[in-house]
């Protein structure tokens, strides 16, 4: 059994230091790794990223993260990622990593992802250059996730997890206004997950959404946005087949 802890949308700012650390310090009792599903800061400034880095530095379990849209707002996501990496966090964008959990190999593939909407109600790659680039960017994120999952599939992992900020499915958006679904996720992420295969999909972004969902191909999806799970993190026990 692999114990996956996950949370997203912790939106840390200057006054946040130490708020989550007491809960994170218990991770060795209940989890083998911690996934951070993006929007770790409010504006993506180095100052905020340092708060996050300090909060997760030297945790008793490996930490794997993707960034979210808030972490891009200050337009220096590479700096945010570098500060987190300096604190020992593996930050993924269109790539994967293998975590050793008590002799078991767990693969995590990550991308921030992007919007565009869901089947039958999605944006198309058509018209103005900005609109086409919107959809192409979402597609590039999904392609990166698919290739990372496929690569992990060749690395003898007992389980593979897809980690995103934007949602791959509409299920976990239930509670959000329907009108903003296209800004909350894209079916392209789910198609990538179903094409490459995964045991669990974890995302954030939808604060008013709901926790449980599933891709069309049957992969379980969990929205771990902190306002949704109402805890410092949730834990999922993945049982190997």
């Amino acid at each position: 059994m692999i114990r996956v802890a996950a949370v997203g949308d912790i939106h840390m700012g200057p006054e946040s230091q130490g708020v989550l650390r007491p809960a994170f310090d218990t991770l060795s009792d209940c989890a083998d790794l911690l996934l951070l599903a993006g929007d770790l800061t409010r504006h993506g400034t180095p100052e905020e990223a340092r708060v996050v880095a300090q909060e997760v530095r030297d945790l008793p379990v490996p930490v794997v993260a993707v960034l979210g849209n808030h972490d891009h707002h200050d337009e220096q996501p590479e700096k945010v990622a570098a500060l987190l990496e300096d604190a020992g966090v593996r930050v993924l964008e269109g790539e994967g990593t293998v975590v050793e959990c008590g002799g078991t190999r767990v693969g995590v593939a990550g991308t921030k992802g992007f919007g565009g909407g869901f089947v039958g109600r999605s944006a198309g790659e058509f018209g103005e250059p900005l609109m086409k680039e919107f959809v192409r960017y979402s597609r590039r994120c999904a392609d990166g996730l698919r290739s990372a999952l496929e690569e992990l599939g060749r690395q003898d992992c007992a389980a593979r997890v897809a980690l995103t900020h934007f949602s791959p499915v509409a299920d976990t958006l239930a509670g959000e206004p329907l009108e903003i679904y296209p800004f909350l996720g894209s079916y392209l992420l789910a198609e990538a997950i179903d094409t490459a295969g995964a045991d669990l999909s974890v995302h954030g972004h939808a604060h008013a959404g709901s926790e449980h969902g599933m891709t069309a191909g049957g992969v379980r999806v969990r929205n771990v946005a902190q306002p949704v799970i109402r805890r410092a993190f949730n834990v999922y026990h993945l049982h190997e087949n």
């Binding site: 912790i10 939106h11 809960a23 799970i229 410092a232 993190f233």
Partner: peptide, 10 residues
Amino acid sequence: AETATPDHAE
């Protein structure tokens, strides 16, 4: 936002 440790796993 609440910051408690979860009391169970799924």
